[in-house]
Design a protein around this nucleic acid. Structure first.
Lengths: 241, 241
DNA sequence: ATGACTTTGTGAAGGCTTGCACAAAGTCGA
DNA sequence: TCGACTTTGTGCAAGCCTTCACAAAGTCAT
């Protein structure tokens, strides 16, 4: 993401004096656009039309243009968008011109998987600490970092902006409370269940079961709609009758 | 989730002859309600008011009631909802009265973590196959299952309803194509990037970087809004000036 | 320079979602 | 039985989001 730094200066002026009101739905899609732009940059493509970029991101071109209009983006009519400039503008809007320090709490399988996942660095985030409360795990090294307890981190750890919770569900709320007490105001929670936090804290939850259940809903709908059926799973088919 | 089976029969009649139109936003919240109900059942609580359940799920009570009204749910005025009956109704709506067979493709750290994650079984899903294309991994056993290639699964594997993609990004589209060719119409994609699939196929994407970037946006907003700042990370603070 | 063509940016319409206000329907104590 | 109280279910209004339609603004060949 270092390639975004060069053009940042030009972007700041437009973007900083904006009204401040980017719709939440748009914010949710900006990362998709950024994700689509990166390989374009790598391929040396310097310009792209909204129609094409929208296809890469999986949205409609009119939505892409409306979204970009919210951040005062300037494409060129008849031509399209400058890939690098647009990426820099989006990165600026998302606050990715600085690197956010992240702590992962819970060194189970998922926590380790995330710790070794390359998707952090180079995308605006850096893992600066790992935590767990299992004495057998504390003190071990994972991906070049020594695992500590959250309590230790609170008293003598690096500053952290974002906390990622990968503990079992029963521990999640206590961990969230500790993170909040440490001053963390952004939490990404992989443990199933709702976290109660103060208003100023932002929590996003990612729950595998929830995602699968939404898929299952639509899957079932398809099966109920077309009683021609065919294959498909196990027991309990009387539901369709 | 076996405790849901008992009451299912009573539910079927109401639910099956419904109009069919449950709003997408509601579908996205039904899993949250189910998730909140399970511990209540375990604690032996048999009845709950919408206000309380909403708090557990992290939504407003009026939204909960509106959502439930879409699936023709019958609470009792002045009393609340029967925990087990409500859970059974939601499970029914989501298609969780049967167990959906799942394949995980990509036996890297994340794939292994998901394979060993307990959140599948007992929630309406069962991992029936694991796949990878690395010859060093194919043939090994993970969590009691032997890893095979997708090609082998296509010709001689168990029927699969849902595919979970945990491969690196460059492989994801090819894997999706193969899954679709196998008849899979529901895909959960953990690889960053947009998947192109036929209309009848349902894809949900979970991207760590995307989630973190949305958090970063709000985090930055807080910092820009309150220039009192204080702590917080590294370089590039001139953005705020 | 001109005209045909391409592509962006946006006002307005339509649809979906949320939240309010309140009637309906039940419980419970006296 | 009655009256006070609780809690659900829902019509309606407000707000947000998406999509359409099209003017604005540029390129490019001639």
């Amino acid at each position: 993401m270092s390639w975004l730094r060069g053009v940042r200066a030009e972007v700041v002026h437009e973007s900083v004096r904006r009204t401040g009101g980017v719709p939440e739905a748009t914010v949710g899609r900006l990362p998709l656009y950024l994700r689509a732009l990166t390989p374009l940059h790598d391929q040396g493509i310097t310009n792209i039309a909204s129609e094409e970029l929208a296809a890469l991101a999986g949205v409609r071109s009119t939505q892409l243009r409306k979204d970009l209009s919210h951040l005062g983006s300037y494409g060129v009519r008849g031509v399209g968008y400058d890939v690098d400039l647009l990426a820099a503008q989006i990165a600026q809007e998302l606050g990715l011109t600085q690197e956010w320090p992240v702590v992962i709490v819970g060194m189970g399988n998922l926590g380790r998987a995330l710790a070794s996942y390359g998707g952090f660095s180079g995308r605006g985030f850096r893992i600066v600490a790992l935590a767990d409360d299992d004495p057998a795990v504390v003190g071990t090294r994972v991906e070049g970092l020594t695992v500590s307890t959250l309590a230790d981190l609170a008293t003598a750890g690096p500053t952290v902006a974002i906390g990622v919770i990968t503990t079992p569900a029963p521990a999640a709320q206590a961990v969230a409370d500790q993170l909040v007490a440490m001053g963390v105001r952004s939490i990404l929670n992989f443990a199933p269940g709702h976290l109660t936090v103060p208003d100023e804290v932002d929590v996003r939850g990612v729950d595998l079961a929830t995602e699968l259940q939404i898929l299952a809903f639509h899957e079932q709908r398809r099966l109920l709609a077309v009683p021609t059926s065919g294959q498909v799973p196990s027991e309990d088919r009387e539901v369709a009758g």
